[in-house]
Design a protein around this nucleic acid. Structure first.
Lengths: 358, 358
DNA sequence: ATCGGTTCCGTAAACGTTCACGGACTTCCT
DNA sequence: AGGAAGTCCGTGAACGTTTACGGAACCGAT
């Protein structure tokens, strides 16, 4: 089983395989020109007649020539791929961003190589940045929802431009950031509850280890403050339905269930809705809840969830624009994307004045 | 804004940047040896004394040398990265697989470049394969849940080994497949319902455009057949909660709600549970339902969902093993991973004999 | 002292491109 | 007719490695 070696350059599978990758010289030969000319048509340089260009193009097609990226990268010292760095979490936001990023990169003609990092970020981030640099990326976008990870990025050094997508983190000379305006999203959600007549609005926060958690909480506070409302109950969790369920349970046990709650994520909302429902507290009749993320299926929760949706495609588009700008020395506009509120059935007008009113 | 050009090799940002990437020659110079020797220690070839090796290593560290992958790739004609191809869908299964794949690749010392394809697969798949080949990947894993995409892969040609992760698709000489044993997963789910005493077991299927949809349905049929039970109602959808909700509604309208249902995905289960619950049909008291996927939060659905979980990490590990095997001409074991059933509260023992019994 | 064998290291060619030069034609003007 | 100015194309060097080859220095044995 293990003694079999494959000749260099060959591979085990059969089918319509080429014997050897054709080079620029092969093309030159069949087209009857010099390799220099082929190179010119490849980079569509001006100094080549229409006739020979046609001939070369035909030759390229005939023998199935494809440009060797390694050779090109070697001589030009610039690359046609960009690096993506993320924490390994399969969470909704990061993954959505990643997918969208790959999409726009491809459409702009860049390949993306992604690598994810793990827990002791101080080491892993620098290593990942280096690996990415090795593979010849022209720039790097890091999706850094965790503040630990972000500070590792700040401390790291890198030859190529690094952009960080991190809600509410600040730019440094070395790495600049871009993000959705999640604070606005949180304000939208809270304001919606306020507009519905609620005055006792609690927050089931996400983890404060995440920028998203921090900034969503800040938005909630701000909306309340602007409306002249006292800050409601705020509990800080870890985004999980489990945590939300358990603290939801605790709240009903202690008789502290609020009139309305802004949950930092749809998953959080899911957990607390279960806690309430299981105890005869109806959503939205007894308590309104709004989530954040608009994950798949949130429109079919019981009840369908009012939530805020982020536009990952727009985010990806913009941040790619920003990175490309940095790579080419351009300056680009960097106003953040605004999320939108989507109103469904989990939030409803306050019927009675809040029980807590004096 | 556009007249500014950056000197070649430089980039806009400041910080502890290196002026030029040090080469093997720079190392040689500070170590006082020839570049050949440096190359030897880099590839830890035997013919170098401990003393000079140490000196070279120190020099490498001192000037922060890193090997230029493009140059290496150019001369060795083998690469240290593998390509990942997927459809762009952010669905649970594919994304989970992708993340896991990246993880094991990294741990094995391979970078991954991912690219996703869009609708007319006949063209886009071949193009993507070519692009991947261009970037110098040593092999490609395509996550092909859609049968259209898979056949595009079958028809495409590629120099490097291609592996497809597609449940229940067959291998061809050109591309070999690997997958979880999802049919087993579906059997497990259905058998669970049978063990609970249900005899009228319906299937809310996924899309038949997906291997996963096909194979999960097959598993349901097989389990029923093996138990000597008549095939129950089967409706084919598109995985969405919306579809499941609406056909769930139709079923109650037509008085056809079954005793138990195996839903092809958790999202499907979510939709149909809402349809039932809204109409006073209780889950699990009136109808048991089991899902498939174990998505985040399914343990906090109302009620917590019995479902089947796939081990993406194991899947990724195995398929990487298989691909690496193909790249190196080895043969490796290819028995599929078995998913596991996770029993929660949405499925319950049948109380009365099925209403449909004659 | 000479020789064969090790051990270590330097040298040159090659990988497939890009790019700056410069040369051979053609064309057009005076 | 004799350039000058274009137009098109070939040539050579370079990019940073790997690898095969060969040579210098040393060793112990004759």
């Amino acid at each position: 089983m293990s003694g079999i070696t494959v000749p260099r350059g060959a591979n085990g599978h059969t089918g319509p395989t080429l014997r050897r990758k054709p080079t620029i010289n092969d093309v030159a030969e069949v087209a009857g020109v010099s390799f220099g000319t082929v190179s010119r048509v490849l980079n569509n340089a001006p100094d080549v007649s229409a006739a020979t260009r046609e001939r070369v193009l035909q030759a390229i097609k005939d023998i199935g020539y494809r440009r060797n990226r390694a050779a090109t990268a070697l001589v030009t010292n610039r690359s046609t791929s960009i690096g993506l760095l993320s924490d390994g979490s399969p969470r909704f936001g990061p993954v959505g961003t990643l997918m969208a990023l790959e999409n726009v990169a491809r459409k702009k003609g860049y390949a993306t190589t992604v690598i994810s990092v793990e827990k002791p970020y101080d080491q892993s981030v620098q290593a990942a940045l280096d690996t990415l640099d090795d593979t010849g990326v022209g720039g790097i976008i890091v999706v850094a929802p965790l503040v630990d990870m972000a500070s590792a990025v700040w401390n790291a050094s890198c030859r190529v431009p690094v952009e960080m997508i991190a809600a509410g983190a600040s730019s440094t000379p070395k790495v600049f950031t871009y993000s959705e305006n999640q604070e606005l999203g949180a304000r939208l959600a809270t304001q919606h509850l306020i507009d519905l007549g609620h005055t006792d609005i609690a927050h089931f926060a996400g983890s404060m280890d995440w920028f998203d958690g921090r900034v969503r909480k800040r938005g909630w506070e701000a909306a309340l403050g602007d409306a002249g409302l006292p800050p409601g109950l705020c509990v800080e969790g870890d985004w999980s339905p489990r945590w939300a369920y358990e603290t939801g349970l605790r709240l009903v046990r202690e008789g502290k269930v609020p009139q309305a709650v802004f949950a930092a994520s749809d998953h959080t909302a899911l957990g607390l809705i279960r806690a309430f429902t299981e105890n005869g507290i109806r959503v939205p009749e007894d308590v309104s809840v709004v989530g954040f993320d608009d994950i798949e299926g949130s429109d079919y929760f019981l009840p369908p969830l009012t939530t805020v949706r982020q536009d990952f495609t727009a985010l990806a588009l913009m941040s790619m624009e920003v990175l490309l700008g940095a790579m080419e020395g351009r300056e680009v506009d960097r106003t953040p994307i605004a999320p939108t509120l989507v109103v469904r059935e989990s939030s409803i007008r306050a019927t009675s004045p809040s029980q807590k009113d004096t």
